[in-house]
């Protein structure tokens, strides 16, 4: 079972309007690569050229900010839910 990724409204043009997409990967870095393979251009909106997450983008695994996990190396397992959230409404350590 793959990981489910929740896509914010402004990026759904890359996913044909889908608000969640299934992605394969055992870490956030792998997930971003797979996301970009299936939805070309998407990674470039989330990451800087050096691969780091852009500073106004928050990525959560099951509601926890990856900055407080292991950033791009944060491990993923089947059934995890990953959310990509722009910091428009501020940042928070967890989504819950």
């Amino acid at each position: 079972m793959p990981v489910e990724v929740r896509i914010p409204t402004p990026l759904r043009k890359f996913t044909d309007g889908a608000d969640t997409v299934p992605v394969e990967g055992s870490s956030i870095a792998e997930l971003l690569d797979d996301l970009d393979k299936n939805h070309p251009g998407l990674k470039g909106r989330i990451c800087e050229d050096d691969g780091s997450i852009r500073r106004f983008v928050n990525v959560y695994v099951n509601g926890d900010d990856i900055r407080f996990l292991d950033n791009l190396a944060s491990p993923l397992k089947d059934g995890d839910e990953v959310s990509i959230v722009p910091a428009i409404a501020g940042g928070t350590r967890s989504l819950s």
Binding site: P8, P10, L11, R45, R54, R55, F56, V57, P86, A87, I88, A89, G90
Partner: peptide, 15 residues
């Protein structure tokens, strides 16, 4: 300058 942004409180009108 883009729909996907981090400028709190502001709106990107087109999107």
């Amino acid at each position: 300058d883009d729909a996907f942004h981090g400028i709190e409180g502001l709106k990107h009108m087109e999107s």
